[in-house]
């Protein structure tokens, strides 16, 4: 069956109305001199507005709280990371997403709005001096936020270029104080079938799990993104916190992380379990190593209506090629 797909500029009603209510609430509270009094006053204000014949939208369900980290964006751009192509329009990057927790098609952005972004905390455990859990907003305030322009190459042979905001993974690793025996970092997405209905399909190996070697995780290119396009990230892009490793195929860049574990065992990743002959642990971009079912030689540039040659390590060889020069007998490009 064909379903009309909404464009990026057409804001779904579910998003637009609550925002209006949100602003209206502020105005109402201010007018009544009740600022700072809680939800009860808000409800009273809304119902009073409703009874006195205010616009119907004032009676809509209460809005989700505004992102408490909004004031941190935009962050200063790091000029070292430049692109060979135009930044992909935000309308595409926020509506064309792989996020299997919310559906197997690309248009999951509406379903993904069910993901509650606060409260959100990240557990750091495994081979560390002392395991701890940190609320996302506390973490955001101690991390050095910056903006980086990165190319993103999906294993499905399409590519985007995104201004991410976040901090180097290395900074988080240093804060975690891993033991010297740790050789891998395992990163995991949330597990909550109530918000992400696809997780009821238990034959997928939820929660989504990815991993890097310690050397990869502490490479300067490995980035933790919390925002994009100068704003806090949206759920479909992996809010509130995700990995971005641009020299690897996109599926390595795990979204909506809740747990980071330091270990000396190579993590078994989500796609490795599903398709061990198609998706490996390393998954470094390489145009000369085809996926078993399609060529990786070229990539379709979203929003640009063209196909361009793919470059080894997605063009980031000068940063990362050295990581692999002594590794033998591994399928580095699968």
């Amino acid at each position: 069956m064909l379903i009309r797909k909404r464009q990026g500029w057409e804001i779904p009603e579910s998003q637009a109305t609550p925002e209006a209510v949100y602003h209206d609430r502020r105005r109402l509270l201010k007018a009544m001199g009740l600022g700072g009094i809680g939800i009860g006053a808000l409800a009273a204000g809304l119902s009073a507005g409703f009874l006195t014949g205010a616009p119907a939208q004032a009676a809509a369900p209460p809005a989700p709280p505004a992102d408490p980290s909004a004031s941190l964006y935009p962050a200063k751009r790091d000029p070292r990371y430049t692109l060979d192509r135009a930044i992909t329009p935000a309308a595409i990057v926020t509506t064309y997403n792989n996020f299997y927790e919310f559906g197997t098609e690309k248009d999951i952005y509406e379903a993904a709005q069910q993901l509650k972004l606060r409260p959100w905390s990240i557990a750091i455990d495994g081979m560390v001096e002392k395991p701890f859990t940190m609320a996302i907003d506390d973490l955001l305030h101690v991390m050095p936020l910056e903006e980086r322009l990165y190319r993103h190459r999906c294993v499905e042979a399409w590519a985007i270029a995104v201004p991410w905001t976040g901090f180097p993974l290395k900074a988080l690793v240093e804060r975690a104080k891993p033991l010297s025996s740790a050789t891998y970092v395992r990163l995991q997405t949330f597990l909550n079938p109530k918000e992400a209905p696809e997780q009821n399909q238990f034959w997928y190996p939820w929660p989504y799990t990815e991993g890097l070697t310690m050397a990869e995780a502490t490479n300067e290119l490995a980035f933790v993104a919390t925002g994009l396009y100068g704003k806090p990230a949206l759920p479909q892009n992996g809010a509130p916190i995700r990995l971005v490793v641009p020299w690897k195929y996109g599926f390595k860049s795990v979204k909506s992380i809740v747990r980071i574990t330091f270990t000396n065992e190579r993590p078994k990743t989500f796609w490795e379990v599903l398709g061990p002959t198609e998706y490996g642990f390393w998954a470094n971009v390489n145009p000369t190593v085809p996926h078993p079912r399609w060529s990786q030689a070229t990539e379709r540039v979203l929003g640009a209506d063209k196909r361009v040659p793919t470059v080894i390590y997605n063009g980031y060889g000068e940063y990362v090629a050295g990581l692999y020069k002594d590794i033998k007998g591994e399928k580095l490009f699968m």
Partner: peptide, 9 residues
């Protein structure tokens, strides 16, 4: 333009 980021695909 209602077929998403890779309309031909």
């Amino acid at each position: 333009g209602a077929l998403g980021g890779r309309p031909l695909h």
